[in-house]
């Protein structure tokens, strides 16, 4: 079981089964990505593997940020960098001791899949029996690829994480897409963490992981 309650103070996330994939949705600048990365860093402090699929930030930045987030150098991270640039040969490299795989574009789903596969193999080979994966962000992927394909991608990736016993977190900017898109995409996941901001206060609610949704609570 994965316990996220040190990051998110609610019993709904105290015991999440291996293979669960969760969508984190909220407007821009509400800390979705921070939450996703904090969830991974918490696992890294317990010796779990971490995979970050990034569509926005370059691998170097991701690794630097992750190091300070975890607080030590003792972590096993693999980054799949799918920005539209910087992908040359070699596709796979080691950066500050961490595994990095470059993909030519967020539209290259096969390439992302290959990167994730190699990342999982690497972390497993390094002795990490469990782990967490974050994909940041689906909103960027949706600017390259239609909703149908992104939905199927999420479903297939969730199945793969399920088989690997990983926990998956995926972020989406709820203000950047229509309601239908959000409604469809959330069906590819087991649970939904919603973030909102009211009167300068960030609030969070968890749905799908327990029988009834949690109430909005301060993050």
């Amino acid at each position: 079981m994965y316990d996220l309650s040190t990051v998110l103070e609610t019993d709904a996330v105290k015991a999440i089964g291996p293979g669960t994939s969760v969508l984190i949705a909220g407007p821009a600048m509400t800390g979705k990505e921070q939450l996703a990365l904090d969830i991974l860093a918490d696992g890294s402090r317990d010796g779990e593997g971490a995979v970050i699929v990034t569509t926005n930030d370059q691998a170097e930045t991701v690794i630097d940020d992750y190091r300070s987030r975890v607080g030590t150098d003792e972590f096993a991270l693999a980054v799949v960098d799918c920005r539209n640039e910087g992908a040359g040969d070699p596709k796979t490299q080691s950066l500050d001791g961490q595994f990095v795989h470059h993909v030519s574009s967020p539209a290259d789903l096969t390439g992302i899949g290959i990167g994730i596969t190699k990342a999982l193999q690497r972390l497993h080979g390094g002795g990490a029996e469990r782990g967490r994966m974050a994909l940041i962000s689906l909103s960027t992927m949706l600017t390259y690829t239609d909703r149908e394909t992104v939905f199927k991608f999420c479903h297939v990736l969730s199945s793969r994480l399920d088989a690997a016993g990983y926990l998956g977190v995926f972020t989406i900017d709820s203000g950047a897409h229509d309601e239908q898109t959000l409604q469809v995409l959330k069906q590819a996941f087991d649970g939904l963490i919603e973030i909102r901001e009211t009167e300068g206060e960030r609030q969070v609610r968890v749905r799908g992981l327990t029988d009834t949704p949690t109430a909005w609570a301060v993050l």
Binding site: A107, L109, T117, D146, V156, R160
Partner: peptide
């Protein structure tokens, strides 16, 4: 996993 994703890439409209 890879073959299924490859199909999505081939079939999806950019």
């Amino acid at each position: 996993f890879i073959a299924t994703l490859r199909d999505l890439n081939d079939g999806g409209d950019l």
